[in-house]
């Protein structure tokens, strides 16, 4: 089962209702999706894992709609992102934008102090999640896909189902916001 391609596993899960095949897909993609969800949820591990579980269940229900035009991981991310958005809408997660309100210098997210270098290294992922959490959810997701996952703008547009122009705007403004935050940190 571990040797099989994603496409074959999906076919087995859809046409033969083979839950072991779907289990292998979950096992194969859980790490990336959980990491992405942690980056979107300010590194809230419990929440991220809950969202990932919901996303995998949703994906199973919609698996027969999956077309091989896209990568399974991209399709899965979209479901995960939609699950995250639904959560944000329900719980009204605090997403104060830094576009208009950069953090103060003493609210540093990334320490420049050599003494704290090892701590900063171990907390690097959480600090980046913190940095992203100051940005509104859609822009946050675009920045994660662009800066971390290194998808092209067109790919991000396809994955998130938003116009290419919106992706470009999110990247441009999001980068400025993040840079502004870094500027505040650097003093």
């Amino acid at each position: 089962m571990q040797q099989l391609d994603d496409t074959i596993l999906i076919e087995l899960a859809v046409n033969k209702n083979d839950q072991r095949a779907y289990g292998e897909l979950v096992n194969r993609h859980q790490s990336n999706l959980r990491y992405s969800m942690r980056q979107l949820t300010d590194w809230n591990e419990t929440l991220a894992d809950d969202l990932v579980q919901d996303a995998f269940v949703q994906a199973f229900k919609q698996l027969h709609k999956f077309r091989n035009k896209a990568k399974f991981s991209s399709w899965l991310y979209r479901i995960g992102y939609n699950t995250f958005l639904q959560h944000v809408r329900k719980k009204q997660l605090i997403t104060e934008s830094i576009d208009d309100q950069p953090l103060a210098a003493n609210d540093s997210l990334i320490s420049n102090d050599a003494n704290e270098d090892s701590d900063a290294r171990s907390d690097l992922h959480q600090r980046v999640a913190k940095l992203l959490s100051q940005i509104e959810p859609e822009r946050r997701s675009v920045l994660h896909l662009f800066l971390h996952r290194q998808h092209t703008q067109q790919e991000i547009s396809d994955i998130m189902g938003i116009p290419l122009g919106s992706v470009k705007t999110h990247i441009s403004r999001g980068r400025k916001a993040l840079q502004s935050n870094l500027h505040a940190w650097q003093g």
Binding site: Q19, Y22, G23, V26, N27, Q30, S31, R34, Y35, D49, V52, Q53, F56, V57, F60, K61, H125, H148
Partner: peptide
């Protein structure tokens, strides 16, 4: 980026499937 260990995620998902 760390490779996150499957902490029963697969098992929980399979048990939650309709």
């Amino acid at each position: 980026e760390p490779g996150l260990i499957d902490q029963n995620i697969t098992k929980v998902v399979l048990n939650t499937l309709p």
